[in-house]
């Protein structure tokens, strides 16, 4: 459904030092810098797949989504979505996709959301019967009710986001790009959004590419993740494999009936956290079967759970490793260049 080949996007940005003098100088003489937002990214997404597109701020996630949606033109490389070249913005292509952005809204601010839905129905040429069916479904899944009749400016952020999603789905897109759809929402609203996205995907076999800083979204929705950092692809595979590769250990979380010395706990594994009666221990995956009964026997354990390390930690570890590898290769490149130029000088001499 989605094919991305060596995609690259460069921006030319005006650069100046802080201060009045630099600002004045920049009026007369501008210096520009080329920023590579997306650098040689390739991946594929099959129809009906739900893929998490992850990376730290400024990694190039949104830029990639916007190129896939046809909003930005790639500097080089190619992207195909269901056989279309997004940058051509063909009508057939635009009728199949939608980009939902948690930080931007398309709803008409002073009018009720129902008016935006109606406008979208006309723009997408949705037959009246299909429109009514879709709206009834969206109403049921998102519990829109009377919300659609109130002016948008009077809705809360969560209510607005529900209506944003409904407005985006009036034409039942086959491919849905979700850019931080749960940003700023409370926990229960986040959960209902996730449930909705999952049901939409299952009901219509829609392909979903999601970016989010909330790992809960990714855990609940995306069996597969594509990770980019500084514009480059650093991982593409299942979440489980990523966790296993980077953090093969398990976490034992214990609630104790009485305090225990840290030295005694450390005999069973690495103490990650020790706060009076609450202890988090890191142990090798293979040791779980032995360590758990031993600890239950040795300590006054009230409660015990076994978990994977938090996904946030796994991600930071991945980013740290990628950066270290990149710095190493850049350093090696620099050394190589210096040596070459020294050789050249030697030749000249």
């Amino acid at each position: 459904m989605i094919e991305v080949r060596s995609l690259r996007k460069e921006y030319r940005v005006h650069k100046r030092a802080p201060g009045l003098a630099a600002a004045l100088r920049s009026v007369f003489r501008r210096t520009y810098e080329t920023i590579v937002a997306v650098d040689d990214v390739s991946f594929e997404v099959a129809a009906g797949e739900r893929v998490g597109f992850l990376g730290p701020n400024g990694a190039g996630k949104t830029t990639t989504l916007k190129m896939l949606a046809g909003l930005l033109h790639p500097t080089s490389g190619e992207a195909h979505v269901d056989g279309h070249l997004p940058r051509k913005r063909e009508r057939a292509f635009l009728e199949k996709i939608m980009l939902v952005m948690g930080q931007k809204q398309q709803l008409l601010w002073d009018l009720p959301p129902a008016e935006t839905f109606e406008l979208n129905r006309a723009i997408y040429d949705v037959p009246r019967a299909q429109y009514q069916e879709t709206m009834a479904e969206l109403d049921e899944l998102l519990e829109l009710g009377e919300l659609v009749k109130k002016p948008t400016r009077q809705l809360s952020l969560g209510e607005r986001m529900k209506c944003e999603l409904a407005a985006a789905l009036v034409h039942r897109p086959k491919v849905l790009f979700l850019d931080e759809p749960t940003i700023g929402l409370d926990v229960s609203m986040q959960a209902s959004m996730r449930a909705f996205v999952k049901r939409y995907n299952e009901r219509w076999n829609a392909t979903i590419l999601l970016t989010s800083h909330y790992m809960e979204d990714v855990l609940a929705l995306c069996p597969r993740v594509v990770v980019i950092d500084k514009g480059q692809l650093s991982y593409d595979g299942t979440l489980e494999a990523l966790v296993r590769r980077l953090r093969p250990e398990k976490r034992l979380i214990l609630r104790l009936g009485a305090e225990v010395a840290e030295g005694d706990l450390a005999r069973y594994g690495k103490v990650v956290e020790h706060e009076k009666l609450r202890v988090t221990l890191q142990i090798a995956h293979a040791d779980v079967r032995e360590v758990v009964p031993a600890m239950l026997a040795a300590f006054p354990v009230v409660d015990l759970t076994v978990e994977d390390p938090p996904l946030e930690e796994v991600m930071s570890e991945l980013f740290a490793r990628t950066r270290a590898a990149r710095e190493k290769s850049e350093k090696a490149e620099k050394v190589g260049k210096t040596e070459t130029s020294n050789d050249e000088k030697g030749d000249e001499a």
Binding site: L71, R91, A92, L94, L99, M101, K104, Q106
Partner: peptide, 13 residues
């Protein structure tokens, strides 16, 4: 300025 032209460009018209 706000980047909401995105929604105009996403429409099939």
């Amino acid at each position: 300025r706000k980047g909401t032209l995105d929604f105009v460009l996403l429409k099939p018209a």
